[in-house]
Simulated scan of single mutants.
Amino acid sequence: MAEPSRLRPEDRADFEAVLHHAMNTTDLRGALGADAAGRVAAHLRAHALAQADDIATAADEPYRSYLAVRRAARREARSLRGPGRLLPALAVLTPLVSGTSAAALLLLGGLLHLAGALGPLPGSLVAAGWTLAPVAALSGLVTLAAVLHTAPRRRGAPPAADQVEHARLVWRQELLDRGMLPHLRRHLMPHPETAITPCSPPDTLTPCPARAREDRTPCSD
């Protein structure tokens, strides 16, 4: 069995956002409201942050999926900025450059012919223009075919950013439902019949013993 993934530093902010959301759910907010000083809430939050990796293991599978999608998106972004963009750029520029050059050579050669220029230059320019013309036409057809072939596939797949965001939201929801809320409820209310009282010291989440309340003595640390 694969070892659970440790929470990445860049995902700590998401973990804290899920923790904040969990502590504001109705049942936890009501239980924490019994402690007017807020010591129990502070302790519970600090404990959850310290146990972040253990809590996150409950949502390990969606977290692995999120990491995989995020890595793939980053690789794709790097490839778009890298040498892989050279060939598509050449495919677009080749018909433009060759077509423009062919037109310019044919126009210049024709003008020289009309001007009665002597020598082989006018004929050479016209011949070069007619040589470049089919190159421009052929490369244009190839580029058009490539665009028509790839366009349906690009429309069929959601953008990488949308995939990453969807995987992130799935992980956060699983972290909340399967990890954060059970952890907080378990440490806040170890027994269903007990309730947090304001005299609970900050280093414990258990209520004061009955004898301590009767004797009106402070809870021991």
Results as ranks from 00 to 15, higher is better:
residue 28 L to R: 09
residue 138 L to S: 10
residue 146 A to M: 14
residue 62 P to S: 06
residue 62 P to W: 03
residue 185 R to N: 13
residue 91 A to N: 07
residue 25 T to K: 15
residue 1 M to A: 00
residue 180 M to S: 11
residue 211 R to Y: 13
residue 68 A to Q: 12
residue 22 A to S: 14
residue 152 P to Y: 07
residue 146 A to R: 15
residue 54 D to N: 12
residue 14 D to G: 03
residue 82 G to H: 08
residue 131 T to K: 00
residue 107 L to R: 11
residue 115 A to F: 09
residue 139 S to R: 01
residue 84 G to R: 14
residue 192 P to F: 12
residue 81 R to Q: 08
residue 11 D to R: 12
residue 1 M to F: 00
residue 150 T to P: 01
residue 66 Y to C: 15
residue 139 S to N: 01
residue 5 S to H: 01
residue 1 M to G: 00
residue 112 L to D: 11
residue 178 R to F: 06
residue 125 L to Q: 08
residue 128 A to N: 08
residue 207 P to S: 05
residue 122 P to F: 05
residue 3 E to S: 03
residue 145 A to S: 15
residue 45 R to A: 03
residue 67 L to D: 00
residue 172 R to M: 10
residue 153 R to I: 07
residue 15 F to E: 05
residue 186 R to D: 07
residue 31 A to P: 02
residue 113 H to S: 01
residue 188 L to Y: 03
residue 139 S to W: 02
residue 140 G to S: 04
residue 220 S to P: 06
residue 116 G to Y: 08
residue 179 G to K: 04
residue 212 A to N: 11
residue 119 G to D: 09
residue 87 L to D: 05
residue 51 Q to L: 12
residue 85 R to G: 11
residue 166 H to S: 08
residue 165 E to P: 04
residue 36 A to G: 04
residue 218 P to N: 05
residue 186 R to N: 09
residue 189 M to W: 13
residue 110 G to H: 09
residue 171 W to H: 08
residue 81 R to Y: 04
residue 24 N to F: 09
residue 72 A to D: 11
residue 69 V to T: 15
residue 163 Q to F: 00
residue 72 A to F: 09
residue 54 D to V: 13
residue 151 A to D: 13
residue 136 A to T: 04
residue 129 G to K: 14
residue 220 S to A: 08
residue 20 H to Q: 15
residue 194 T to R: 13
residue 75 R to G: 02
residue 126 V to Y: 04
residue 159 P to D: 04
residue 69 V to N: 12
residue 47 H to I: 12
